[in-house]
């Protein structure tokens, strides 16, 4: 049986991890590759790196990041940030990334999803969606935002997920802007709305504050994977603890210890 996945996410600026971390046995807590290797040893199923370098330099830094990760990592990893078109994406995949994540570029130019999916395979094209609640009654509606959540698109997030999957996205990375950073748990309604609507794996993101939140979004919203940053970076929980907790709740997990 296919396992559910735990995916730590690292924000990287100019080749350095932005958030601090707890691993005591690594020499350089700001080095994304060293930190990623530590997560691999701890049992992370995949990794996501988001390059948040200022956009004019990002085309270069993101390729370099992919190249360095490919040298050291023996689990799949996704790179996101700053890729605008097919040529940018090709460079990052060629540098060794298993998957790329696109957000703004996909919304502004949806054709890029289909072209890249056909050329490189659906399995390596992740469409990232930042969604925000815009209507609560009579039914909830969410809108997709771009450019780090700064710009509204007028596009319904669930409809956009359906379109992205239809165009060839292999996976949806779904972040709730309402729960992100709150540590109050994932947005269950949003996640369920998307997992029900599309037939590709959905990675839930935004809001994990404890291990029950991971269980909840898988059980109640049928997420295929859970992405989290701060609960792992700041040492609140280890990956192994998180996996054991989820497995104990009856979720199929890859236990490594």
């Amino acid at each position: 049986m296919l396992s559910k996945r735990i995916i730590p996410c690292l924000d990287v600026r100019n080749g350095r991890v932005v958030k601090g971390i707890r691993f005591l046995d690594i020499r350089d807590a700001g080095d994304p590759v060293e930190m990623a290797s530590a997560y691999d040893h701890e049992g992370a199923d995949e990794l996501v790196f988001l390059d948040i370098t200022a956009s004019h330099e990002r085309r270069q830094t993101v390729v370099e990041l992919a190249r360095r990760c490919a040298e050291e990592l023996f689990i799949p990893f996704t790179i996101g940030g700053g890729m605008r078109d097919e040529s940018d994406i090709r460079k990052v995949l060629k540098a060794g990334a298993d998957k790329i994540a696109i957000n703004s570029a996909a919304l502004e130019n949806p054709g890029v999803i289909g072209r890249c999916s056909k050329r490189f395979g659906a399995q390596c094209i992740v469409v990232a969606i930042d969604a925000k609640l815009v209507q609560a009654e009579p039914e909830k509606k969410w809108e997709a935002f771009v450019h780090g959540g700064r710009i509204a698109t007028g596009c319904d997030a669930v409809q956009w997920a359906i379109e992205a999957a239809g165009r060839g996205a292999g996976e949806i990375l779904l972040t709730s802007m309402d729960t992100d950073g709150t540590k109050q748990g994932y947005d269950i309604d949003l996640t369920r709305a998307v997992t029900t609507a599309v037939n590709v794996p959905v990675i839930a993101s935004g809001g994990a504050g404890n291990l029950d939140h991971l269980v909840e979004v898988v059980k109640k919203a049928n997420a295929d994977a859970v992405l989290a940053a701060s609960i792992f970076h700041y040492g609140t929980y280890s990956i192994a603890q998180a996996k054991e907790h989820m497995a104990a709740a009856g979720i199929p997990m890859r236990l490594t210890k």
Partner: peptide, 11 residues
């Protein structure tokens, strides 16, 4: 009848 491609960690 499950999702194809089969992607992820399996036993």
């Amino acid at each position: 009848n499950l999702k194809i491609p089969h992607i992820g960690w399996n036993r």
